[in-house]
Design a protein around this nucleic acid. Structure first.
Lengths: 243, 243
DNA sequence: GGGGAGAGATGCCGC
DNA sequence: GCGGCATTTCTCCCC
């Protein structure tokens, strides 16, 4: 438990040094910027990063309740409160955090230049299909992948044995209505630009919602069930811990 | 700085008590679930909430680099590492965090039943237009707002002085291609179900991208510039601090 | 910097 | 639970 002036001093010192911070406190938060908000009094954890990102986390859920990027930060004592302010003038964003209790305060220079490596994205799905086109159909011949063609950002682009063009849109999850309209947009663009009357549209995803299926059929497109790829070896490594 | 067995004991104690935690550490993170990932060694802040949400934050950006909801957590010492594991069996998710250094560890019961109040959402835009329909056009008569009609989730629904139906889709930001396809989907649905040949589509947003504007015109829809509402008094309260 | 689209998206509400 | 959709979405990539 820190008193307000001790908090202020430590906070400003951490700002100057470019340290990251974790603060446990009882606070009230108001925000004005892209929207406006008020968060009544409660206990939260405030994170401040060395790039001046500020996050206010409640004790539930994975998204911060309030946040600001590239914030210009300040702290001071005002009556019975410690106050933290965050401003991003160019974005016209302002935040004010009033604190009555500072349960804990930690600050430290965190050194981390590493980037996460992820496998199993939509792009990985498209690559997998490039390697094994029969996942779409026996006669599917892919031509290009995720190229910014003049037709737009098309996940997979190819043709069948008759030379009919095929547009494939990949989704990692259940394909929904917007996936169908996205596919439709690409197919129409190609028809338009090439002056073709027939272009096939294929939605590749693990599953598809009922309404999306109806709309798909209405527009003469087809659905193919494909799961995003995973490195099974790694999954197994975790899995065996469960046995 | 905590040694590994001290960390383990405090961590497990906090889990049992349902406390929230903030941990500063040097760690390596691997994940398998909806995708698979590896994050090489670096300094991070780990947050664990009372609802068993786990967040791993690097020192930049507002999104956690790794995370899991409803995690079953454990901690132990393994050779030179402290290890934190998180599992969500039903989701087939697994995470393993190896720590060589624990810079700080804070845990505490955080009491907070408050909900944030936000003004300026898309729904607020629709309400504002309901109050002042002339923002769309002088003869726009709104009938319903954000109702789950048999036509779908339509932001605003009404007609002009000739009785021609009007569908309004609101966007808080620059309207893009998907906003136009969304509008198009609603208009077509209504035409279909009512057997009408003419239904007006209006996109209400602060601005619109060039391509979206083209597509809008191609489909005979129109754009109206509308800004999401704000409580100006409050904005002014912040603003005067800047002077 | 804007436009377009994915994300291990998250979160909300309705059925 | 799924479905449909907004989000102070965030982030990345390309033009």
């Amino acid at each position: 438990m820190l008193d307000h002036s001790e908090f202020k001093i430590k906070f400003l010192d951490a700002i100057i040094k470019g340290h990251s911070m974790a603060v446990g406190c009882h606070c009230f938060v108001s925000y004005s910027g892209r929207a406006e908000s008020e968060l009544p009094w409660g206990d939260r954890i405030i994170i401040i990063k060395s790039d001046r990102t500020l996050l206010v986390h409640q004790n539930k859920g994975s998204t911060p309740v309030n946040y600001m990027k590239e914030a210009v930060l300040d702290a001071y004592v005002e009556g019975d409160y410690a106050v933290v302010t965050a401003e991003n003038i160019s974005q016209k964003e302002f935040m004010r955090i009033e604190l009555t209790q500072v349960y804990f305060f930690e600050s430290r220079q965190l050194i981390d230049e590493q980037k996460i490596r992820i496998v199993g994205t939509e792009r990985d799905m498209a690559e997998m299909i490039m390697q094994n086109p029969s996942l779409i159909s026996l006669d599917f011949k892919p031509l290009s992948m995720e190229e910014h063609t003049k037709f737009g950002f098309i996940d997979l682009f190819g043709h069948d044995k008759n030379g009919t063009l095929i547009v494939v849109e990949c989704k990692r999850y259940s394909a929904d209505l917007s996936a169908v309209t996205q596919l439709r947009r690409y197919v129409e663009k190609i028809k338009d630009m090439k002056g073709l009357s027939s272009v096939k549209g294929v939605l590749a995803a693990p599953k598809i919602s009922t309404n999306a299926q109806s709309m798909l059929e209405k527009w003469g497109f087809s659905f193919v069930s494909v799961n995003p790829p995973k490195y099974l070896e790694k999954f197994d490594r975790f899995q065996k811990k469960l046995i």
